[in-house]
Amino acid sequence: MTRDDLIDFVYDEAGLLDDMLWEDWKALFAEDGRYWIPLEWQQEDPILQPSLMYEDLLLLTVRIERLAGERTFSQRPKSRCHHLLQRPRILSMGEEDGVYKLRTAFIYTETRGDLLERYSGWVGHHLVDEDGALKIKQKRIDLINFDAPFSNIQLFI
């Protein structure tokens, strides 16, 4: 993988979310991939420390199917989202463990009806090469105000 491959991946991943192509987005995850929003600054443990989200493919599937459900009342009207990314920083080319690591500053906007909310933070990608394709081992979202009380965040940062 080249540095450009890694950086393109991060932009393309956000593009799938903005286009609400949830199934295509989910397909970017490795089988044991995780989506994590910690609730503490520089949190290390997703299991025995509280998080806003720590989800595997099964749980992400539930979320995605729910978004399209007939009786998903909180999605009437539907939400939309927008990811504004700074150029990703490559923290590791995986020389030792085969895991590419990137960190990207973002502004995330989620809107529904007349409401619009903005969130800022950094997204960390842990990526692996599976048969020539990059897959997400872990996508981690650190919000600058992780400890603030938010209203509904229904889509994916």
């Binding site: 299991i47 509280p50 989200m53 938010f150």
Partner: peptide, 23 residues
Amino acid sequence: ERALMYNRFINAPTSIVGHDDLE
């Protein structure tokens, strides 16, 4: 671990159960 999981599943702003309650 289970209690923390329950809390984020049901009581968080990112909870798919909470979303419909709040609605």
